[in-house]
Design a protein around this nucleic acid. Structure first.
Ligand SMILES: [Mn+2]
Ligand SMILES: [Mn+2]
Ligand SMILES: [Zn+2]
Ligand SMILES: [Zn+2]
Lengths: 141, 141
DNA sequence: ACGACAATGCAAAAGATTATCATTTGTTTG
DNA sequence: CAAACAAATGATAATCTTTTGCATTGTCGT
């Protein structure tokens, strides 16, 4: 949260890092942001940070465990504050809406599958794609 | 399989398309190939096909339902012959090994989650990442 | 305040994929 | 079978996202 946090993970407390943290923390519903999203948000706030720095800092935050990186369909990486609790995502392919969920049964089954194939599981990614309720309404109209 | 298949889906029977089909069909264990992989395989066979054509044809085959496209971690799209039966993947992050599985319980739970959130599910992708047995052995040594 | 070293910004580079367009090839027709 | 037309190809340029090089600036412990 505060900048002492950065020191703790071995990163110097710089203006770009503080600003980027602020953006991510105050993102609200738009928790899932690409580097470009973060960059634009910074500019809108009047903070002039280079795009390359945004990329660098996001990667550092990811390695420090502050952020989680996702690979939604469509190319760019998206990041979100790591709130400690793992979750997966369901996305609307029409409007880009994102919802989060955790399903203990699925989590458990994944581990079982890894075991069965002799893998030590390090990570997994599950994305469900579909059309949300609002977008279905619009389509009918 | 044969080239009449191409006609059926509205694609002209051209040399590049036939060659690319052959590569994909005879891929064996290396079923999952990137455009670059296919391109290199063609060159090794002495078939001079342009990289742009490989990209175009793979996309066309995907749209025709002959191929399935996946987004494994690491940037490039990978393709595989569509054998009709859906499956998910578990990958070794050390050696690139890929295994395939189907878990009815997970499939079912995904549908339930989509319902719960009011989505009409159109697709989903599940990748489990880990270290395979062979690679664990090597690490210990 | 000083100095060592990390961090930044800009521009160039890289990697993957798509678009452009002149030329070639496949398919249809007579 | 050859002409005619449209579709497909290949070389290259362009795009998009992300990374890198490097000179300059900023941070932090002393
Ligand atoms: Mn999330
Ligand atoms: Mn597969
Ligand atoms: Zn929607
Ligand atoms: Zn392995």
């Amino acid at each position: 949260m505060d900048s002492q946090f950065l020191k703790k993970v071995g990163l110097k407390v710089t203006l770009p890092r503080i600003k980027i943290l602020e953006i991510l923390e105050s993102a609200g519903t738009a928790r899932h942001m690409s580097a470009e999203d973060v960059y634009k948000a910074l500019l809108e706030h009047g903070d002039d940070v280079g795009l390359a720095t945004v990329y660098r800092v996001l990667t550092q935050f990811e390695q420090a465990g502050i952020l989680t990186r996702h690979h939604f369909e469509g190319g760019q990486s998206v990041f979100e504050m790591d709130e400690g609790k793992h979750h997966d995502h369901i996305l609307c392919t029409k409007c880009g809406r994102v919802d989060e969920f955790v399903d203990p049964t699925i989590e458990e089954r994944q581990k079982a599958i890894a075991d069965k194939f002799g893998y030590t599981m390090t990570d997994h990614s599950l994305y469900i794609y579909g059309v949300c309720k609002e977008c279905r309404k619009k389509e009918k109209a």
